Amino acid sequence: MTKKTLAEWWEETYGSSAKQAEEGDAAYDEVEALYAKLGKEPAVDASVEVIRKEMAAVYRDMRSGRIDCNDGTRLAYVLDLLRKSHESTVVKDRLGILEKAVGVKPDNGGPDWLGLPFGDAGPE
């Protein structure tokens, strides 16, 4: 038995995208139209890679003894917070793009039970 790559297994199981395009699969056409509207951006932003590399550098410095483990843990924690905030911003932006492309009105308000002024511009 020979090992298959994931791409080979996918094509064998679900067929090729060219075959789907020829058959006129409606879902395939919708997805391709959505890609045409959105453009194809990389899934991993360069900023996330920079943060990941910095976290790796902190880890290497802790392993080699250049940074105290307590300080390194704090640095890694702050870097993780930066990564999370960056990811949430990117997800929010991409969701807005998807909502605009699909034609859905975005939900600008937050949950009512929090009692916070999410949609409020603040005092004038």
Rank of each mutant, 00 (worst) to 15 (best):
K92I: 05
S88P: 00
E23W: 06
L98V: 13
P106E: 08
E22F: 09
K37N: 10
G109F: 04
L79Y: 12
A7F: 11
Y14V: 01
L79A: 09
S16C: 00
D112N: 15
E41T: 05
L82T: 07
R63W: 08
E87P: 01
K84H: 10
V78G: 02
N108W: 10
W9D: 00
S85Q: 14
A121N: 05
T13N: 01
F118Y: 13
D120V: 01
E32P: 00
A36C: 04
K105F: 02
M1W: 04
G122C: 02
K100R: 14
G96L: 06
M55K: 15
A56S: 14
K84I: 14
Y14M: 05
T2P: 14
W113N: 05
L82P: 00
D71Q: 14
E87T: 15
M62G: 03
E54G: 05
Q20L: 12
L95H: 06
K53P: 00
N108R: 15
K3C: 06
K105A: 07
P111V: 12
L114Y: 12
P117T: 02
E54L: 15
I51T: 08
G72V: 03
K19V: 09
R52S: 11
L98Q: 03
S17G: 11
V104A: 10
P42I: 05
E99N: 08
A121H: 04
D71N: 12
V50H: 11
T2F: 09
T13G: 01
L38T: 03
V58K: 10
S85Y: 09
E87M: 14
A57S: 14
D80V: 03
V91Q: 06
I51K: 08
K92A: 12
E124I: 07
A43L: 13
D68Y: 11
M62A: 06
L6R: 04
Y28C: 02
S85F: 10
Y77P: 01
L6K: 03
V44Y: 01
D71L: 15
I51H: 07
M55S: 11
G115F: 09
V44N: 01
R74Q: 11
T13Y: 02
G109R: 07
W9C: 00
D93S: 15
R74I: 12
A76V: 11
F118C: 07
E12I: 00
H86N: 09
A18F: 08
F118D: 07
D120L: 02
A36F: 04
L34S: 04
W10S: 11
R94S: 08
V90Y: 05
E11K: 04
S88R: 12
S17A: 10
N70S: 12
G65Q: 02
Y35L: 15
I67C: 04
P106N: 09
D120Q: 05
L6Y: 06
D29Y: 00
E8M: 01
Y28Q: 08
M55P: 00
K84L: 13
V90N: 04
K100D: 12
V31E: 14
R94E: 07
A56D: 15
S88N: 09
V78A: 11
A46T: 07
K3M: 09
A121V: 08
E11L: 00
A26V: 07
A33I: 03
A36Y: 04
W9Q: 03
P42S: 15
E32R: 10
R83E: 14
L95G: 13
K40A: 13
P123C: 01
V48F: 06
K37R: 15
K53D: 12
R83L: 13
L81Q: 11
A101N: 08
R83T: 10
A46V: 11
A43V: 10
L98C: 04
K92H: 03
V78T: 09
